[in-house]
């Protein structure tokens, strides 16, 4: 049994309970989203006591050194004094500068930051609504050389942040950004074959990575797969067509069921990727989107001979209602 100290209160964490769960029981939890150690929305800071290694999984070294950790992934084994992550130093102020409907499900949001913001295309940021600190992760489809950040926001039924970003917040509205984070960005030998596969708005980081790779003079073949259960989940057709005019780039769009528009095939992403004759021992892969598909593809690519270290993945875990 570990004792947590937070904002002057003292709380008993039950065996196996996370800091997030313990503080939720006490009614004073920090913002959270994925609850599975992926999205970094529930960032907190330990001011005393030692953290289990899993609590800092995926955080950048500078953040680890400051004692920052993920409340959802921290199951304390000894007493711990925790505090809110110091917002000012970790966040960048931004404003919503553009909004464009890409499909029935997806809206492109552009943001301008007040100060320079360093990131790699394909990484994700935590978007924080200032009024109530609601926090959600979004991947970056833009390149750092471009003046604005670009996010693809999927309308989540009942989703508070997506409704706010897509419909409610006026242009010019301020938001706070934290990050960037994540290992999904271009990193490869110039001749290496690249395989990128995603569902839904998992396309955002993948498009960012492909454009970044081309920008950096990548010469190997690039295959970009975008899959959806139905055609309504596909979007960005024109921009993908433009990307596919590049001699090294092949774009494949697929659905599992229902009508298949021109240029779209009906087949599972895993079968398409595995059956395309990619040189998996030499290639590098990025997988983003629905967690089940990301995990399935990662396992299949690995079993087919791809080194685990050559596979970067970003499962998009949707926040439970009310989180």
């Amino acid at each position: 049994m570990a004792r947590l100290t937070y904002r002057g209160g003292s709380f008993e964490a039950e065996d196996g309970e996370s800091v997030l769960e313990c503080l939720e029981r006490a009614g004073c939890a920090p913002p959270s989203s994925c609850r599975s150690g992926q999205c970094q929305s529930c960032l907190m800071k330990a001011t005393s006591g030692s953290l289990p290694p899993a609590a800092q999984q995926g955080l950048k070294d500078a953040w680890r050194a400051q004692g920052l950790f993920l409340a959802c992934a921290c199951r304390p084994t000894e007493d711990l004094e925790v505090a809110d992550a110091d917002g000012g130093a970790l966040e960048v102020a931004a404003t919503i500068t553009g909004r464009e409907v890409l499909s029935d499900e997806v809206v492109r949001i552009r943001l301008a930051t007040g100060s320079p913001f360093e990131y790699r295309a394909g990484q994700f940021v935590s978007v924080i609504r200032p009024s109530d600190r609601l926090t959600r992760p979004y991947s970056l489809a833009s390149l750092p050389s471009e003046p604005q950040l670009e996010l693809h926001v999927r309308r989540v039924p009942g989703g508070r942040m997506s409704a706010w970003l897509c419909d409610e917040a006026p242009i010019g509205e301020p938001v706070q950004l934290r990050g960037p984070a994540g290992e999904c960005f271009y990193l490869a030998g110039e001749e290496q074959p690249l395989v990128l596969a995603g569902t839904s708005t998992g396309l955002a980081p993948l498009v960012g990575i492909v454009r970044d790779a081309l920008d950096r003079g990548h010469r190997g073949p690039i295959a970009l797969y975008h899959g959806s259960v139905r055609a309504s989940g596909l979007y960005l057709a024109d921009e993908l067509d433009t990307l596919a005019t590049h001699p090294n780039v092949r774009v494949v769009r697929s659905v599992l069921e229902g009508p298949t528009p021109d240029g779209v095939v009906q087949e599972g992403l895993d079968a398409l990727v595995l059956g395309s004759g990619h040189d998996l021992k030499a290639a590098r892969a990025w997988l983003c989107g629905a967690p089940e598909l990301v995990r399935l593809l990662k396992k299949k690519l690995f079993l087919a001979g791809m080194p685990l270290k050559a596979i970067a993945s970003d499962p998009f875990v949707v926040a439970p209602a009310g989180a």
């Binding site: 995990r295 990662k298 396992k299 690995f302 079993l303 080194p307 685990l308």
Partner: peptide, 24 residues
Amino acid sequence: VDIFYRKVLADDRISDFFDGTDMD
């Protein structure tokens, strides 16, 4: 590690014990 991990994932006797959600 990669060779061993592939073997245990493909071994029906024990693959269930190794088939976690976080491969890394």
